[in-house]
Computed example of a mutant assay.
Amino acid sequence: MPVCRNCGHEWPWKDTQRLSIRTHRGAVCQFCGEKQFQSRKSMRKVSLFHLLPLLVLPFVIVMDVSIVSGLALLFTAEAVFLTAFPWMVELTNKEEALW
């Protein structure tokens, strides 16, 4: 789980999930009130890991899986990403560009 760079408190899972939606604007730490941003390294890692659900599509096409099964695999891959997201995030005090 990410740790605030100002106060050192570990962010709760729910607050970290909110950060997944507002990556570029940052989020305010509920403990110290300072704005925190996702680090460049963390954004790159999350961007690559977010491709996981898309890797399911070629498998579905090649293996001739039914649409229902394909959608179930896609939603499962997305659920894995959303569950693992908080453990991949690192915070920083300043906003950094992705590339």
Score class of each variant (00 low, 15 high):
Thr83Leu: 14
Met1Val: 01
Pro86Glu: 00
Val65Lys: 09
Gln17His: 09
Ser39Trp: 07
Leu91Asp: 02
Arg44Trp: 12
Thr92Phe: 01
Pro86Arg: 00
Val60Glu: 06
Leu52Tyr: 11
Glu10Asp: 03
Gly26His: 08
Ser39Asn: 10
Pro53Ser: 04
Thr16Ser: 13
Arg18Cys: 03
Thr83Gly: 12
Lys94Thr: 15
Pro86Lys: 00
Met88Ser: 03
Met43Cys: 08
Glu96Lys: 14
Met63Tyr: 14
Pro2Thr: 04
Gln30Ile: 06
Val65Trp: 04
Gln36Gly: 03
Cys29Glu: 08
Cys29Ile: 02
Val89Met: 01
Ser47Ala: 15
Leu74Lys: 02
Ala72Phe: 13
Glu95Met: 13
Trp11Ala: 00
Gln36Met: 12
Glu96Ile: 11
Lys94Met: 10
Val89Arg: 04
Thr92Cys: 09
His9Cys: 09
Val28Asp: 14
Gln38Cys: 05
Asp15Asn: 08
Ser66Trp: 10
Gly70Trp: 09
Gly26Arg: 13
Ala97Pro: 07
Leu19Val: 00
Leu91Tyr: 01
Leu54Lys: 05
Pro86Trp: 00
Leu74Cys: 04
Arg22Met: 07
Leu98Ile: 13
Leu73Trp: 04
Cys29Thr: 04
Met63Lys: 15
Ile61Phe: 12
Leu91Glu: 04
Cys7Met: 12
Arg25His: 08
Thr16Ile: 04
Glu90Thr: 11
Leu71Thr: 15
Leu57Gly: 07
Val60Tyr: 03
Val28Glu: 14
Phe81Pro: 03
Gln38Ala: 07
Phe37Pro: 04
Thr92Glu: 09
Leu91Lys: 05
Glu95Tyr: 14
Pro53Trp: 00
Arg18Phe: 06
Ser69Asp: 15
Ala72Thr: 15
Trp13Ile: 09
Cys7Leu: 11
Arg18His: 12
Gln17Ala: 08
Gly26Ala: 07
Val68Gly: 13
Trp11Lys: 02
Cys29Gly: 05
Lys35Met: 01
Gly70Ile: 04
Leu55Gly: 10
Lys35Val: 00
Ser20His: 06
Ala79Cys: 11
Cys32Ala: 11
Arg44Gly: 13
Leu71Pro: 15
Arg22Asp: 13
Lys35Arg: 08
His50Leu: 11
Glu34Arg: 11
Asp15Gly: 01
Val68Phe: 13
Ser69Val: 07
Gly8Val: 03
Val80Phe: 10
Ser42Met: 00
Cys4Lys: 10
Ala27Pro: 02
Cys4Glu: 10
Lys35Asn: 01
